[in-house]
């Protein structure tokens, strides 16, 4: 697209580059801008604006009414806290459990290793929707020993939203790919010096794994934060409900779209914040994945 311009015309070239970047950015941002702008508009105006470019603009009667009403309609804070809790704990445990497994697959020799790895990779292609009911039947009968003694089911808890989601093929796969690219000499040297496997894992490998940790954490965060079907069927008490189940509170016979937009805007904020915090490490992470060891 630059070829039509004289190469010496730097100013113009630069302007065109930015123009292209901005036009493309508009494609990605406008629908989200529609969401945010709509959250400040009364329903009648919101719905009328969808037929024109006003949908993207902060025009008309702007109000925080939708936000106020959303808080009245549903315990928004509770839902966000539940989601952040479940998501945070799962991400943390997933990083440990999956990296440990990947470490074993890449650096250690043990009987059954290749078979187990193939099986884990095959689970990548099982869509969750298709195993939800069998899984429900399993967790409903699982016992648990907790602080309050023995329980006979996992339903209506945080753990039922966390434990089944800790390990998954994709996260293991990401760690395996990354570990393969780390220089093997480091591990060999540590072995020769008599370091234990745990020491090598914790002192040598994990300090180098920052980038892949960021990638895996973001993917897992998105997956967990957007959970809907699973909490819907295993949680019957409001106190454990996450944000996407909470969204259902807003689909009444008389749907208030402004409130929905306000709710959607609010629940998107934590994800955006999490992403921005990790963005640097994330981009660096994937960058280093291409390096072949």
């Amino acid at each position: 697209m630059m070829a039509v311009l004289a190469p010496e015309n730097h100013g113009l070239r630069l302007a065109v580059r930015y123009l292209v970047l901005i036009l493309v950015a508009a494609i990605f941002v406008l629908p989200l801008l529609f969401m945010v702008m709509s959250s400040f508009k009364p329903d009648a105006q919101l719905l009328n604006d969808t037929s024109s470019l006003r949908a993207f603009l902060p025009v008309g009667d702007l109000t925080l009414e939708n936000y106020r009403e959303a808080f009245d309609r549903a315990p928004v804070r509770l839902f966000v806290l539940n989601s952040v809790l479940v998501t945070g704990v799962t991400v943390l445990l997933a990083l440990i459990v999956c990296s440990l497994a990947a470490f074993a697959f890449v650096y250690m020799n043990w009987r059954g290793r290749d078979v187990v790895l193939s099986i884990i990779l095959a689970t990548l292609i099982v869509p969750f929707e298709t195993i939800a009911i069998p899984l429900l039947l399993i967790v409903s009968k699982l016992p648990w020993i907790g602080l309050d003694g023995i329980e006979t089911t996992w339903l209506n808890t945080y753990r039922v939203q966390i434990i089944p989601w800790i390990a998954d093929g994709l996260t293991v796969f990401l760690f395996v790919q990354y570990f393969k690219d780390l220089p093997g000499e480091l591990i060999e040297a540590a072995r020769v010096e008599g370091a234990s496997w745990v020491q090598i894992y914790w002192r040598v490998v994990m300090p180098l794994a920052g980038p892949v940790i960021a990638t895996a954490a973001i993917l897992k965060f998105l997956l967990m934060y957007n959970q809907y079907l699973w909490p819907l069927i295993v949680v019957q008490q409001e106190q454990y409900r996450p944000v996407m189940v909470g969204l259902q509170y807003f689909f009444q016979l008389d749907t208030a779209w402004g409130e929905i937009m306000a709710y959607l805007t609010m629940i998107t904020v934590p994800v955006l914040a999490f992403y921005l915090v990790l963005q640097r490490a994330f981009i660096a992470s994937i960058a280093s994945q291409g390096v072949k060891g």
């Binding site: 009911i133 429900l136 039947l137 409903s140 089911t153 339903l155 209506n156 819907l232 069927i233 295993v234 019957q236 189940v245 259902q248 509170y249 689909f251 009444q252 016979l253």
Partner: peptide, 17 residues
Amino acid sequence: PQASYNDSVVAAALAGN
């Protein structure tokens, strides 16, 4: 929530809850 009430009940019935 009404929109997903029936799904919740059927799931709970399957799980004996």
